[in-house]
Design a protein around this nucleic acid. Sequence first.
DNA 1: CGCATACGGATAGTATAGCTATCCGATAGT
DNA 2: ACTATCGGATAGCTATACTATCCGTATGCG
Lengths: 200, 200
Amino acid sequence: MAELSTTSDVPVATIKYYLREKLLPAGESETANQARYGSPHLDRLRLIRALIDVGGLSIASARSVLEVIDSDASLPETFAVAQHSVSVAIEPSDLDPADLDRIDELLVGWHVSPNNPGRLASARVLSAFRGVGQTDDRGWFARYAEAALLIATADLDEIESRPDRAAKVETVVVGTVLGDALISGLRRAAQEHVTSERFS
Amino acid sequence: MAELSTTSDVPVATIKYYLREKLLPAGESETANQARYGSPHLDRLRLIRALIDVGGLSIASARSVLEVIDSDASLPETFAVAQHSVSVAIEPSDLDPADLDRIDELLVGWHVSPNNPGRLASARVLSAFRGVGQTDDRGWFARYAEAALLIATADLDEIESRPDRAAKVETVVVGTVLGDALISGLRRAAQEHVTSERFS
DNA sequence: CGCATACGGATAGTATAGCTATCCGATAGT
DNA sequence: ACTATCGGATAGCTATACTATCCGTATGCG
């Protein structure tokens, strides 16, 4: 365990914590006070840190996506779990139906289930926009939807390019969780670029 | 204050907390135990809740963006504060320069300063991707960058359409903070759409 | 006038999350 | 034989975002 700690740069106490929380499977006990941790454990630990540190997942969310990776769930099932894990739960009841309608207008022609977490989250954002007195510019949001479609298409192309089911499932999870961080980051870089272009 | 609480649906104790934390300016005291809160206070309170609940900002981050809204900062300065507030601080020193190079390759032709929080965050995501054994597919990330540019252009168009500096500054902040939530939400909807298109 | 009620402000307490430090008995190396 | 280290269990810590209680003042109502 000490070796796992030094190679992964994660404190021993934290590794023990992840074991307790069932994020990391126990190493195989060799004697009563010695366990063996191999490269699968190291890989898993790196995945955990990526999900938590970079993706911002909670311990509980990380556990549920790791469980789905270990299971034999289908790709759509995996997507559902991954999406749920990165979204804050929203009660459809405390959402203005008008906001949902507006989102559905943006998504015409899209095949999206009514309780898709993204649909609900988008409606909540729209509601917040209106609440702070922003005019809700259809054109603005429509361009976001266009960009979202580009990204999702790129995601699915990438997933399909993976050789087997296990690799596909891991890409679904990693892509969903880290993709959010990536698009946010690139968006900030692009904002600075476009700003400097227009205010120079 | 009780009235402000009922119309905004924020508990009185929480309003007092925001006053203490200097997120909300005090109402003007009418007598020793009575203060007056008007619609500017209600607007501000709604903005605070949007930033915290929907945008996921911490109290400290919310305070710094509210301060910049109240100040007479320029648009680029406002952008910098808003971007900083939604990003986790990253030490450039614990980043692999190779990852930064790869990000810069994606951003050729863009005018982005070396310590743009988005640039650093993107490099960290790239590092995490490699760490979990994903092949870093240039095409995938390039399509993200393209989408990011679309979004940033839409953001700047929207900001320019605002009538005066105060409105522009508020749109910078609200757009930066809530825009992240919006693109994430729409991306999930788009993922379900594209998935169902391909697996039906 | 009297007094229960409500007010705003100050202070202390609470719940949760994510670690982190200490203790413990067993065992491995010298 | 003995000291250091191991893994496991348990308790403690820190930060964040509230939440509840207390308190002196003042207002409305009879």
